[in-house]
Every structure is written in structure tokens, then in C-alpha cells.
Design a protein around this nucleic acid. Sequence first.
DNA 1: GGTATTCCAGGGAGCGCTCTCTCCAAGGTC
DNA 2: GACCTTGGAGAGAGCGCTCCCTGGAATACC
Lengths: 350, 350
Amino acid sequence: MTISRPDGQRSPTLEEVAEWAGVSRSTVSRVINGVSTVDPDLRELVQRAIDATGYVPNLAARSLVTRRTDSVALVVSEPDDRTEQSEPFLNRIFTDPFLGRITAGALEVLRPEGIHLVIMPAESPAHHHVLRYLRQGHVDGVLLISSSDEDPLPQQLCDLGIPAVLSARPGKPLPMSYVDVEQQVGAKLAAEHLLAIGRHHLATISGPLDMPSSQDRLAGFRAALAVHGHAYVPSAAGNFTRASGEQAARELFAAHPEIDGLFVANDLMAEGALQALRDLGRRVPDEVAVVGFDNSIAALQCRPQLTTIHQPLEEMAAEMARLLLSRIGKADPKPRSVIFHPRLIKRESA
Amino acid sequence: MTISRPDGQRSPTLEEVAEWAGVSRSTVSRVINGVSTVDPDLRELVQRAIDATGYVPNLAARSLVTRRTDSVALVVSEPDDRTEQSEPFLNRIFTDPFLGRITAGALEVLRPEGIHLVIMPAESPAHHHVLRYLRQGHVDGVLLISSSDEDPLPQQLCDLGIPAVLSARPGKPLPMSYVDVEQQVGAKLAAEHLLAIGRHHLATISGPLDMPSSQDRLAGFRAALAVHGHAYVPSAAGNFTRASGEQAARELFAAHPEIDGLFVANDLMAEGALQALRDLGRRVPDEVAVVGFDNSIAALQCRPQLTTIHQPLEEMAAEMARLLLSRIGKADPKPRSVIFHPRLIKRESA
DNA sequence: GGTATTCCAGGGAGCGCTCTCTCCAAGGTC
DNA sequence: GACCTTGGAGAGAGCGCTCCCTGGAATACC
């Protein structure tokens, strides 16, 4: 950094604070780091010196010796094969309420620990950029939001030995901690609710099929319906954006006009589907019942408001942060996973 | 950080690479940093040593001496007085397409320079947290998205002497670089378009009135209408979220059912207003014409699609990044500002 | 009263890098 | 051939901090 005080001089060092207080560097260091074996009078003297000089520890010097930076990265990753889409990656992740909830949940845990969170988008062509950032030791660990099966980032982080926690079950088995929600159970809740309100022609809009979570929701939905004798369930895949949900709904209803119950793999796409249904003149929920997934704020902003499957993203992110901190603290590399339970939130759309 | 190679040993140092190649630390350093005065053969030898050992420079050690970190922060700040709102800050900023466009624009400039961008939300109670992060020297400079007049962060960064660039004209005069768009001109474009399509009862939904940009858009709209003899212009303030736009529109139409032309200070609120109008049974654009602001992706996802005022956010962010880099490179602290031009994008809603 | 023990401040090494300075060798000049 | 210049490698200091170790003073123990 190039920090210089307003008057042009450099920011004070430990040594200068020590001189001000008439003590040794070590003593100031002890005060800064809250070591208890310091005489209270001296401690106060040093504290005054710190205040007087406006001292702030130099992070580079500190982390050179402690090998800690007290910050972790939230990396939002994107696989290769989806970069060609209409809506740019950055638009997508910064439009979906998902990221805000994750951030909020993680900060809830990290801030009290004095750990900073830096958010980094990592769309595919810039993967190496982010990887370099991580390898350089800017952060102590990584919260990785990775969607695709094909994403090499989890494996790479693993190889690098950087502590990391995943936001979902990895596509390939990997010795990493992760949190997840019971995707199949969520889908089952949706299926059973649609059946319970008397719908017979069910269909689903899934997420991208290279994502384990999308696969699980789709499989869970189909499995639940199979139990009730529904062998064939029309489906169309979107990419979790509103526009893709709208598009998928159009396709689905063009091919299967008889559909009267729709499970959509996230709320944003459900909102798009609602739009499509409105354009098609289908009344929701009278003619078509719609169930979303996420229970994001988008679900409340729809008309009609979305019945949806709640996943506790904030708690999940908080747990990710906790898992990461425990990995950073100890040298214990034993990966753990924590699975959360979804639940049905009944509103107007189904 | 606690990086250890998979096999448990620490990552290699310059010294080790030098030993591998049989040269001095200095030579390896020169190769790493692309200094030209190195024998090509030696350079290649060193390069092989780097590859073989998997060497990555230790950032802390480097920045301890260079006083550079090669990363900048994108800080999204929030003033004190707005934290009490219904929709949490993190939800708001990670739902508005705004941030994604800013990030994209900044990365466009920063990545080719090898500069990393870290995104940090800074809602008011956590200001000191972020400030500490910045003071510790994690970053070389700051791109500051600050909305309110009352936000102390610009002043604080100024006092700290951290290079920073603002995303809008600061509320109080400050020796900082900033970019902005001609807000008043944008509002004028909206006003004149609404008049041009024959609307006579105009109103506006503004942003929070503690934001200079909101004030400017409101003032610009009023001024343009005053020229055409409209003395009184009903207005209601939102907070740039969809829900607040919906709410504001309801209030406005309850008090002034005669409104036939509406200028909304951003697209997200305009989308909310469209929702309200639909609920009220007012046809857009036939009965009420609506003009938004931003030309965000949200404008395309509305029904009807929004006529809006385009502001080139990506280019503005890129310019912010350029201004910041020039401030970081040189010691020249002369602040500069760059003002962009808005333009009207005609679609369906007006 | 002498020795063992505890407590707490200071000294010093060293984290991994950059960067200046020095030095050597090769080439050029008169 | 003696001198100077230049290109390019190495040596060494030092960035600001932590942390181990040492040592002196204060206290406890026999």
C-alpha cells in the first residue's frame, strides 16, 4: 500500500510507539495482541502512545511472521461451460438474492471473530486470477460457492492445501468440508404439496443439470411423484435467472398445455414462470399452481406471492464460516459436512 | 495464511528456487519481476526452477517492502440513518443489478493490470471493521460506492490518505476523484419524453433524499417541467428497491389518481411501480406512461419493458478504476472528475 | 539469610522478499 | 596494452512485526 498520513509522512511503526512510551517493541506488541503478562500501568501508558501516534499494525509485517491474514474469501465460482449465456455471470450473481443471504450469514460469524470477508467473483476465464490471489496468501481460507460438477476449483483448492468449505456437496468426492440442504427432501415437499392440493399434471423447471443440487431437486421431485404413480414428469432446465424461468415455462406449456402444477428449482425462475403464465393467460394458482425453491425475498415480491421451499441460507453460510474457522485454527484436516432441512412455506401461488 | 503443500511442507521460498537453479536470490527475484537485465539462458533455467518447485511469491513479504498489494477494494457503503429499513442492506445491494455492472466495469480495467478486486459491503455498524481492513494496508486503494450525504467514509478515507475514487459527486466538497453521470440531464430527458408523448399529469418516484444523485434527479425533473409550466410535481421517495417503488406508486396514485406519466429514479423501483399499476388496474403505457433510470437488466424483464434513462455504469466503473490506478501509481494527489452522459432508451412503457 | 521460583520487560533473530550497491568479466576506445 | 565503460550476477541490508529466550527484580520457601 501507499498509505501516507495526510501530512505526507508514513504511518508510525511499533518501534516509534515504543519510543514514545519509553518501552520496548516487545511490550507494545504484547499490548496490541492482548497478552496478559503486562503491567497494567505500562499497558495503559502504551495504549496512550498508540492513541497519540495513531498507530495501526502493518498487516504485511505481521502476517509475514504469523502466516495469518485474518481474512477469508467468499469465492463465487462459475464453470467453463456456462459462460456463453445471455446474461453475464456478474449480472446473475449480483441479481440473485442468494449471494446477499450467504454474505450476511457468513459475516454474522466472521465479524465477531475480527475476520474480514472479501468477495470475489470467479467466472471461468478469470479462474487463474482468483487462484493466484488465493495462493499468494491474501486470505486464510475460502468459502467456495461452486455450482457445477465440472468446476475444477474445489479440486485445485484441495491440492493447494488452502482451507476451504463448499456451499454444497461436491460433484466428485473430495476431502473438503461442506454444508448442504436436503435437496431431495425439499423437492419431495413440493411434490407432495402439489398433489395434496389436487394437482395431477405436474412438471418442473430445473436448474442447470451439471449442478448436483439441480440434479437432486429434479431426482427428488420425480422420485416423490413416482411413488404416487406418476411415471412421466415433463421438465425443462433453466439457469436460475428470471429470464430463463420464463423461457422454460413457455416451452413447457407449449408442449404440455395440460400442466396444472409446477415446481421451479428457485424463486427467481419461478418469478419468470409466473410472468410467462400471466402472458399465457393462465391464472395462478387456480389453473396452475407454482412452487418455488429458496424462500428468497423474490418470493414475496411476486404476484401472487410464491409458495416455496425454504432453505436456511443464512444459517448455512454461518455454518460454513464456522467450519472454515475450525479448519484454519487447528491443523485438523478432517472434513466435516452439515446438512440442513428444508421446509415448505405456503403462500398464494400453490 | 496456513498454506501447506498437500504433503504437509511449506510452500517454497525464493531462496529455495535459487538453490534449485544454482543462482542467487536476486536473480530469481529479477526473473519473477520481469527485470530485463537477465541472461536469457539463466532466465529460462530459473523459470524451470519455479515450475519445478511450484513457487509462488509470498505476498506479505513482498508488500512489506514494496508497500503495494496489487489489490483494491470495492466498498459499498451505507449511511447510518438507513439501516432501519425493512429490506436488509446486504439483500438490497446484492439484488440490485447495479453492483454487478460496477464490478464488471472495474474488473475490465483492473484484471489486465493484474490488480485484484475485493468487494466489501460496509453497512453502518460495521464501518469501523472495513476501515480497519483498509488501514491495515490490505489494499492499495478504494473504489467507494457511497450514497448518502451523511456518509462519513469518504471523509475518513481522505483523512487516512488512502487513494480512493467515488462513484458520485460527494455530498460535501472533498479533494477526491469521482465519476458521475449528468443526473439532471437524465431527469430532463425523462421529463421531455413524457411531455412529448402527450402526458400532462406527471409525477416522480425519487430515491432517498439524502443522496445527491436522488436530489439531482428530482431537481432535474422538476426544473424541466417548470420550463413547460408545470409548477407542481407530486413525488414520493423510495429506497431504490422494488418493494419501495411499489409502495411509493400506491401512495402517489392514491393521492393523485390523475397521474398519467411517471418518472422513477431507478429501474428496480419502476418495476415495483409497474406491479402496483397492474394491481390498480391501470394499463401501461396507455393510461400511465412510466420511465425508469439505469437501463439495467431489470428494465428488460418488466412487462411492459421499461423505457428508461441509460447510464453507462460499466464505463463509469472502468473510469473509476483508471482514476484510482493513476492515483496509486503516482504521488499526484490532484483529484479529477469525469462526467458521463445519460441517454433515453425507448421501449414499451412510455 | 540464602536459594529457588515466579513474573514480566527487553534483546535479538528471523519471517521472505526487494532493491541498492558492489563486483567481476567482457567489450570498446585511444 | 592500459584504461574506461557496460552488462549482468551476487551480497547484504532492511521492510515491521512476532516470539523465543534471557535476565533482573520481586516474591516465596526452607
